[in-house]
Design a protein around this nucleic acid. Sequence first.
DNA 1: TCGACCATCGAACGCTGTTCGATGACTCCG
DNA 2: CGGAGTCATCGAACAGCGTTCGATGGTCGA
Lengths: 230, 230
Amino acid sequence: MAHSLETVLGEAVALLDEGGEPALTFRALAARLGGGAASIYWYVANRDELLDRATDEVMGHLLEHTADLGEGPDPVANLRALSLALFDEMRRRPWFGSYMLRNTGLQPNSMLMFDRIGQQLMRLDLTPKQRFHAASSLVSYIVGIAADMAQPPPKEFLDSGLEPAAFLELYADRWRALDPGHYPFAHHVADEFARHDDEDVFRSGLDLLLAGIQAQAAGRRPAHGARVEA
Amino acid sequence: MAHSLETVLGEAVALLDEGGEPALTFRALAARLGGGAASIYWYVANRDELLDRATDEVMGHLLEHTADLGEGPDPVANLRALSLALFDEMRRRPWFGSYMLRNTGLQPNSMLMFDRIGQQLMRLDLTPKQRFHAASSLVSYIVGIAADMAQPPPKEFLDSGLEPAAFLELYADRWRALDPGHYPFAHHVADEFARHDDEDVFRSGLDLLLAGIQAQAAGRRPAHGARVEA
DNA sequence: TCGACCATCGAACGCTGTTCGATGACTCCG
DNA sequence: CGGAGTCATCGAACAGCGTTCGATGGTCGA
């Protein structure tokens, strides 16, 4: 069968989309491509490189689709838009976030995304060190949220067949069942947890970071227009 | 051979400390315990549960060693101290962070740590929703940094035998070799990257978040004593 | 003394990533 | 036209993995 690096990566991404990281198997991928598992090694040195290239592939597409997101007048708004685009992609592909930050040197598109974030920070009045720290913190935060959402739903959920909201409520009940003496906070926020929306949580922490960055740029004066609510 | 859940988890943690997650093998663990691999299944249902319990084990020890870290007068300072304790543990055990947030229901100690963070937030003048968002954001950020540090050093490094600082400089050179037109930010912060210290970066983002939280508590007035520099 | 339960064991199964040598197709050069 | 050589693919095999199973002996209470 006639393959090509593109078709290999394309099918690899499809496999990842369908079953997550454990579903990406050389044999399963070979079956899709209509050939033997050994053939894949012609295009890729090992499974790690396959994963790297697959994630960089989707990062490349994401960069294309968001090419215009850095051109707004407000750099902070651009950072928010860029971060939300990453969040959307991670919601679509839970496996994606997990491999986002292993910049093993290859992964040029991940590096490009990092640079895009940094370019917005260069438009703010910050020191290079502040900019480097800000970019790193933003990426780490995004990846942290990604790792959270990448957790596969416990099989209790898959078995129960409940709606996500109902399952969340069931989970909140488990919080409420804890000993209030040892877990006062769990009780305090059980309701919030039951009703929470992942994107709200993401936006909230993101805005904390962005407000802090903007405050730095404004020279410690209170930031204008920075959303610190919610 | 006579095992016990404690010795099993203890040796599992030792194995993880020595070789990271891939080193934790049922056969390797059995060899350490002086028995067969199948015996481990008496104490643990499968490898996932073994990992969960092992991480919860070290989280338990961490909770003990930091039991006094929530008693300071300033909740924000307590949050910083708690976060730094987690950071230290992740630096000591790179594998630890990766498994910190899979709260599959078991993992009572991870839940306890989450609650401890929340308890400090309960001392701040925030809405329950704000507190839930703040706790989630803090944990996500910490985990994101953890994921970053959990990346095994590329084998180029292990082969070269260079000092970490020298290797970092070599990496920075690679940034400097990129096309400045496509990667302006990489050039802009290459020096910072070469000299950066992981803990500084962590503290920086952490302070952004904490400053934002404190600003929320202060009702949008500029926060007192929140470190926004660096 | 007998049965029940606890803890452990060796052997095996099915799966994984990966390697190797062979095999055919295709291109280029004399 | 013919042979050399690279390209791409293949089947088979290897070592390792998590996991299961049935058997085995040890320990305890009745």
